[in-house]
């Protein structure tokens, strides 16, 4: 008896010039000619900044935009394992992240933040990457718990990705197994700190030194 893997079902291509969706996604991810919209905004902002007195406008605008960004971070609900229970507790009324402007949203296309809560397996990693790619820029990722940070207790397993940072860029790592809601809340506040100087440096914040 011959064992054959089932043939993968490729979704029908929307654009005729692309053979399949994977090819389109690859091109979209690479962006050979760069991000045109961001480049235009940067040039505009630079122009205003160099205008006499214009720096006041850009600084105030930056502060306002960062305030707006950090006070409406919408996390996509991406629960993978037991950390998801703690994440749900954080979202629920006792810890209530909604007072920070966070609305857990079940759609990646409306979200800014992905909280990877749980073990990322090799089978799940392509889906995680795809969901992350669907989120609009600017976007952030929080790695929650030991499993997502480094593989945790399953690090030596045959099927575990040793840290979600091998799949997507991560901004804040929350340690714990699983982290209690207080820890996650602290991590989210740290993320808000990062977002608040998002534009001052022109790039993402560098990893901070150890706090304690």
């Amino acid at each position: 008896m011959e064992i054959k893997a089932p043939t993968p079902q490729i979704p029908p291509a929307v654009w005729t010039e692309f053979k399949d969706l994977q090819e389109w996604e690859k091109l979209h991810k690479e962006r050979p000619e760069g991000d045109k919209h961001s480049a235009l905004f940067e040039r505009l902002e630079e122009g205003i900044f160099n205008f006499p007195g214009g720096f006041i406008v850009t600084t105030v605008a930056d502060a306002f935009l960062n305030w707006a960004r950090k006070s409406s971070v919408w996390p996509v609900t991406f629960g993978l394992a037991c950390c998801a229970i703690e994440m749900m507790a954080t979202f629920a009324s006792r810890f209530d992240v909604e007072r920070l402007g966070m609305v857990p949203f079940a759609s990646p296309r409306h979200s800014d933040l992905m909280i990877v809560s749980g073990t990322v397996t090799i089978k799940m990693a392509p889906m995680l990457e795809r969901i992350y790619d669907q989120m609009p820029d600017p976007k952030w990722a929080v790695s929650m718990g030991s499993c997502a940070n480094s593989g945790g207790p399953f690090r030596n397993g045959y099927h575990v990705v040793k840290g979600v940072d091998r799949v997507i860029p991560v901004d804040v790592y929350v340690p714990g197994c699983p982290p209690p809601p207080e820890s996650l809340l602290y991590g989210l506040l740290k993320l808000q700190d990062q977002i608040s100087h998002f534009r001052k440096t022109g790039e993402r914040a560098a990893p901070t030194e150890k706090t304690d």
Partner: peptide, 28 residues
């Protein structure tokens, strides 16, 4: 056919001869 692992997985992980650090690009 396979039920837990992806269909393109190579090898059988619970065999004693299977090395747990078998490379699996791009994730390991």
């Amino acid at each position: 056919r396979r039920i837990l692992l992806p269909h393109d997985w190579e090898g059988y992980p619970l065999l004693k001869s299977y090395a747990v650090d078998t490379p699996h690009p791009p994730y390991r």
